[in-house]
Computed example of a mutant assay.
Amino acid sequence: MLTGSFTFVAMTYNLWGDWHLEQREPAIRDLFTTRPPDLLATQELRPRSRAVVDEAMPGHARVHDDFPGWGTQSNLWWRRELFDLVEHGTRDVGILDAGARLFWVRLRPRAGGARTLVFSTAHLTWPGHAREREDGRNLRTGQARQVAAALDEISGDEACLFTVDINDIGQPLWELGNSGFLDSFTALGRTSPVTHPVSPLPFATGRGTRLSPLGSPSKAIDWIFSRGPIATRASEVVDFFSSGNAPSDHHPVAATFTLPSKQGERP
């Protein structure tokens, strides 16, 4: 580690809403008790799953805000002994779900003289949304473009992490890449393992999806992107089960990053 630099672990996780949540609660609790990240971003959050995460990570803080989406869509956690909250907010980036936004925090590391960091998350619209089925137009491409523009305004030249369930494998990823974001696997010369669906999934009932008899193909749709003065050190799709149960139908993605010091060292 460079003198004055600061290294930490970030994780992104789609918590699968209320689906089978009662059965999954022990596995969610075990995951975050066993390997709590320094920064956590969630999608498909619900008040009950948020309470489980709070219980499992008592050394972490999160955003408390009256906007409903912080309890029904996403929230962001940070380890108190490592980070202080500077500010937080949301941006409407065209995601078609109640309370869905780009959620972000600006954090200041408490040690090492490192620069501030913008940490953010979003859950782009599901391809099965009625509007997309009606006209066949990919909604996520425009949403990714709006995310990149919003983060341009919020973070500028600051270090920025954007975590996402992107619900796609093509154009929205290209939009982010062409906006200067690099995912945590490409940064290391790798390709991402599958993040969805988790297999075996003990809560699966039948095969196919709500809209088709075809099963969901294995794919990487959960990502941690970085931009600005920050370096990727390691990246992993986490394979975790507790007593045979999966915490979600998605795998979490965890990555290790280093922020440079304020003195201008390269990460």
Rank of each mutant, 00 (worst) to 15 (best):
M1T: 12
L2V: 13
T3E: 13
T3Y: 13
T3N: 15
S5Y: 01
F6M: 10
T7F: 15
M11A: 13
G17D: 09
G17L: 14
G17M: 13
H20C: 14
L21I: 06
L21N: 03
Q23A: 13
P26S: 08
A27S: 12
A27M: 06
I28E: 03
R29C: 10
F32R: 02
T33F: 05
P37C: 01
A41T: 01
T42R: 00
Q43E: 08
Q43M: 02
P47D: 05
P47N: 00
S49Q: 00
A51W: 06
V52I: 06
A56V: 07
H64Q: 15
H64R: 15
F67G: 11
P68D: 15
P68Y: 10
G69H: 10
W70S: 04
S74M: 08
W77P: 00
R79Q: 12
R80D: 12
E81A: 12
E81G: 12
F83S: 07
T90I: 14
I95E: 02
I95V: 14
I95L: 06
I95H: 03
L96P: 11
D97N: 11
G99Q: 05
A100D: 01
A100G: 07
A100T: 04
R101K: 08
L102H: 01
L102K: 00
F103E: 05
P109R: 02
R110Q: 01
A111G: 06
A114W: 02
A114M: 00
R115K: 10
L117M: 00
S120I: 00
S120Y: 00
A122H: 00
H123D: 04
H123M: 11
L124Y: 01
T125A: 01
T125M: 02
T125N: 00
W126H: 08
G128L: 06
H129K: 09
R131I: 06
E132F: 07
R133D: 05
E134D: 15
D135W: 05
D135K: 04
G136C: 04
Q143K: 00
V147R: 04
A150V: 02
D152T: 09
E158V: 15
A159G: 05
C160R: 03
C160A: 14
T163M: 13
D165I: 07
I166S: 11
N167D: 08
P172E: 06
W174C: 06
G177V: 03
G177A: 11
G180R: 05
L182C: 13
D183M: 03
D183G: 02
D183L: 03
S184P: 08
G189N: 04
R190S: 13
R190K: 14
S192F: 09
P193T: 01
H196R: 09
V198K: 00
L201V: 11
L201P: 12
P202Q: 05
P202M: 07
T205S: 13
G206L: 03
R207D: 15
R207E: 11
G208H: 01
T209R: 05
R210S: 14
P217M: 04
S218A: 14
K219M: 12
A220T: 11
I221W: 08
D222I: 04
F225L: 06
R227T: 06
R227G: 02
P229Y: 02
I230G: 05
T232E: 09
R233C: 14
S235A: 08
E236R: 08
V237M: 07
V237W: 01
V238D: 10
V238A: 03
F240S: 07
A246R: 05
S248W: 10
D249V: 10
H250L: 05
H250A: 07
H251G: 04
V253H: 03
A254E: 12
T256P: 08
T258H: 07
Q263P: 13
